[in-house]
């Protein structure tokens, strides 16, 4: 179903000027630490980390990844700090953010968990 982080090579690399120009923002992606950058959206951070599929669809279970990067397609839905169905491309990364891939439909009774 999900491709794990270590199996994928990054699909995007950061330009040298972008590596030095902005501050590092530590986040976790499915529990694994990743150094995102200031100015990254969650979807950008996922692509920089080599995550192509960030969720599976509720209908067929097919993997999906960020497609439009401008808030239109809703394909980059992820769980952020326990809150499911967040648009990854519309959410800037924050220090300590917990980003998780999302599987199928969300469970209706799940209450959002507070991040520690």
């Amino acid at each position: 179903m999900h491709e794990s982080l270590k199996d994928k090579l990054p699909m995007f690399r950061r330009l040298p000027e972008a590596q030095t120009g902005s501050g590092s923002v530590p986040v976790t992606i499915d529990g694994r630490p990743f150094a995102a950058h200031e100015g990254d959206s969650v979807a950008a951070a996922l692509l920089a980390a080599g995550v192509q599929a960030c969720r599976t669809t509720p209908v067929s279970g097919a993997g999906r990844g960020p497609f439009c990067m401008m808030g239109v397609c809703f394909d980059c839905l992820v769980t952020i700090d326990g809150r499911p169905n967040q648009q990854g491309c519309q959410t800037p990364v924050r220090t300590g953010m917990k980003i998780e891939q999302q599987s199928g439909a969300r469970i209706a009774v799940d209450a959002p968990q507070q991040s520690s």
């Binding site: 995007f12 950061r14 000027e17 120009g21 950058h37 960020p66 497609f67 439009c68 990067m69």
Partner: peptide, 17 residues
């Protein structure tokens, strides 16, 4: 992806395919 998405990644994050 949409071609515009690659442009957005480049402009906002300096990410290149």
């Amino acid at each position: 992806m949409a071609a515009g998405a690659a442009q957005i990644l480049l402009k906002s994050s300096g990410l290149v395919p």
